[in-house]
Design a protein around this nucleic acid. Structure first.
Lengths: 249, 249
DNA sequence: AGAAATAAGTCAATCGATTGATTGATTTTT
DNA sequence: AAAAATCAATCAATCGATTGACTTATTTCT
């Protein structure tokens, strides 16, 4: 509860120890969870003394909170950040056509796959984040807000443009979650998917296959009628999927 | 490692204590994980003495393994079991048409939603299972085999029938995973989805909405071309989605 | 400038609390 | 009476945190 945090007039050496504790915290907390992660294993990996944790962060939980805040930095890869800015800009300024929205959505999901499955070290902070989102504790709010803001909200907004519904419509949010869940499962139960597929890792060609399937399903999911107006498009001739579904391979 | 397990000539009272430890183990292990779940909290919830764990299960890990094996009982709800038997029978005996396969797939996913989101107590064993599948430990194989056998394999087989591919084709498995991921996300990051939607729980009408979206997406995902033969169906006239997509609401 | 004084950071040793497991006496069931 | 089961008491090990001596870095004073 108390936060001593003697961090005001810090020296350079202290900043280094602080930084290394955060990095080690991401790894050890991410791998073993809060309880199972001993402060000794963290300080050993960080190469600092055991007393450095209460000194810099007040307590083990203080470090945990600091790691959670620090981790929000890793949440969006370089590729994702650019796309997210594009989406934000487009949605703010002008009306976005369904085609534009769909293309941005594809870019977003390509970024999700890259960030979650093909980025070095993503398994460490991803584990940390998902564990917290699965069973909320003290830092749930921090991570939840960042994740939703960087993933679900933009998706729901684009989906809303495509389906011509408000972005906070439950259907838009649900569709955003289901589509995101398609990517997420390969991260959360990574070992299950790898083993079933007989793979050792998600390498280049295999990632492309996953990307293609997801791209196609994002595409098809948002074509045609929404839930309410079910038989609105009685003549699907203009909805030939062969042109706006640029499947790879 | 050693398993004394004095369980051969047990009395009735012993069986009762054994059973209560397993139930309490599901709950406490599921809520807090292996490390954070103390043997004392488990025995308190079970209403037995602390020494009962090493007595009946050899050790804490022995109990953990026993819980994992016991938990496979809960993995399929009554509704799911019936559908799974149908699927197995259909796939064994005769050739299944794409329409039949799709209908069975819909039944399966309705069952998934019901079992994972609308079944009392599912959060407890589900947490246990997902934690183990997320970061494999000693009981990963047991749970993985059961889960894959009861969910992914049947889905992949049906998808294979629809897409006219072998059920162990990577694309079939990937599609099975992505579709299953659409349901799973509402269980794994349950609090995130509920909060974003402004909901308190997945009640009847809201579950129906989720079910409808998933049903529609399962439907659309498997219509039309697969990845390789992309423009095979040049005339989608016979593929009007208004009849084989019985959307609710 | 250089020296003294103060602050910041590091470290080994140790604290009380809690962990999983064991013991041996006792009670219950067959 | 014999086996099975329960129980309080206690074990060594490990947990997170604290202590006070120690070193390093920065500031202040002359």
């Amino acid at each position: 509860m108390s936060e001593p945090k003697p961090h005001q007039g810090g020296y350079q050496r202290g900043e280094e120890a602080r930084r290394r504790l955060l990095e080690a915290g991401i790894e050890v907390f991410g791998l073993h969870g809060y309880e199972a992660a001993s402060t000794r294993s963290i300080t050993e990996k960080a190469g600092v003394n055991l007393a450095a944790i209460p000194y810099y962060f007040g307590s083990k939980e203080g470090l945990y909170r600091a790691v959670a805040e620090h981790i929000t930095t890793h949440l969006d890869g370089p590729k994702l950040t650019a796309t997210l800015e594009q989406v934000e800009k487009k949605l703010k300024t002008s009306q976005v056509s369904a085609e534009q929205a769909l293309e941005l959505l594809h870019q977003l999901f390509d970024g999700f796959v890259t960030t979650l499955l093909a980025t070095e070290g993503s398994d460490l902070w991803a584990r940390f984040v998902f564990r917290e989102l699965m069973e909320p504790s003290s830092v749930f709010e921090i991570l939840n807000q960042h994740v939703v803001q960087k993933t679900i909200r933009p998706c729901a907004a684009l989906i809303g443009q495509i389906l011509d519904k408000p972005s906070d419509d439950p259907e838009c949010l649900i569709r955003a979650f289901t589509l995101f869940g398609q990517v997420l499962i390969f991260r959360t139960v990574r070992e299950v998917t790898l083993r079933s597929l007989g793979w050792q890792e998600f390498s280049g060609d295999r990632l492309d296959l996953i990307r293609s399937v997801i791209r196609q399903q994002v595409d098809r999911s948002l074509h045609g009628s929404t839930l309410e107006e079910k038989t609105a498009q009685s003549h699907p001739a203009s909805n030939d999927s062969s042109e706006d579904t640029p499947d790879r391979i």
